[in-house]
Design a protein around this nucleic acid. Structure first.
Lengths: 131, 131
DNA sequence: ATAGATTTATAGCCATAGCTATACTATTTA
DNA sequence: TAAATAGTATAGCTATGGCTATAAATCTAT
C-alpha cells in the first residue's frame, strides 16, 4: 500500500522543513532562534519550541537553553538533502511553465513526496530545459 | 507563508483519500465497508471507524450503524475532484517516464499538493504527450 | 434457530502539532 | 544598574490519527 509511504512521509515532513529552515537561518543570520522559526513557519512560538524539543531529543539539533539552535551532523545531512530536493522540484515547476510564486508554494508541499526515481526524471527534464 | 497552505492541505488530505476510496468501493463493490477501507489503507479497523465518524460529523458521508457507508453530495464532489486530480498527476508522472508503480506511489503523495495552476500545466503536458 | 464467524463500535492508550496564557531568562536602553 | 522589552520555556488545552483489546451487532451455515 502506497498510503503507508505517504503517512511515513508526513512524519518526516515537518522535521525536514524545520531542519532546512534552521540551516537557512544559520547561513543567512549566523543563528537560528525560536522566534524566527515561528515567524517563518507562521506558527506560535510555543509550538516551534515544542517541536524543537522533539528534534533535540531525536538528535537532529543541538542547543543550550535560551541560546541559538544548531544542527547535529545527522540534522545537517537531512537539511542538505532536503534543500537539494526542494531546488530540483522548484526548478522543475518553473520549467513546466509556472510562475515563481506558484512554483515555490507547490514545491513546498510536493517535495516531501517525490521518490528518488521521480527526482531523477525531474533533473533530466531540468537539464533539457537548461535552467 | 506557503507553509500554511501545506498544513492546510494536510488536514484535507486524509479526508480526500477516504472519500476517493469510498467512491471507488461503491462503484466496484456497490458498498463501502469499514473492513475494506481499513485493509485498503493499511490501517487498523478501529482507526478507520474513528475517521469515518469524523467524516460523518463533518457531513461528508452518510451511514447507519453496522451498514455500508455512502457519500453525501458534499462528499461526492470532493471525491470526484480528487479522482480527476489523481489521474492527471498519475498520467503526468507516466509521461515523465516513470514506471507504473513509482508513478502510482508518488501520485498518492503529490496529488494533494498540486494547485490548480500546476494541474493545468500537467494536463497540457499530458495532452502534448498524448497519453 | 442458534452457534460461530465476521464486522462494527467503543474504550483507553500514545504521539504529533496546533493554540493561549503565563512564567522565566536575557538583552537593551534609559 | 535597574527597568522595560524581547525572547524562551512551560503548562494545559484541542484535534487528528495511529494502536490494541474488548464488546456488541450482524451474517452465515449447520
Amino acid at each position: 500500500m502506497s498510503f503507508k509511504k505517504v503517512r511515513n512521509a508526513h512524519k518526516t515532513e515537518n522535521t525536514e522543513d524545520y531542519l532546512e529552515l534552521i540551516s537557512e537561518l544559520l547561513t543567512i543570520k549566523g543563528e537560528a532562534r525560536i522566534v524566527d522559526i515561528a515567524n517563518r513557519l507562521g506558527i506560535a512560538q510555543a509550538t516551534a519550541n515544542k517541536t524543537i524539543q522533539r528534534l533535540q531529543h531525536q538528535g537532529f539539533i543541538k542547543r543550550e537553553p535560551y541560546r541559538s539552535i544548531f544542527l547535529s551532523v545527522k540534522g545537517q545531512k537531512i537539511a542538505s538533502h532536503s534543500k537539494k530536493r526542494h531546488n530540483t522540484v522548484f526548478k522543475f515547476l518553473l520549467n513546466l511553465g509556472l510562475d515563481e510564486k506558484t512554483a515555490s508554494a507547490d514545491a513546498e508541499g510536493i517535495e516531501h513526496h517525490v521518490s528518488d526515481k521521480t527526482l531523477k526524471k525531474m533533473n533530466k527534464f531540468n537539464a533539457k530545459k537548461n535552467v
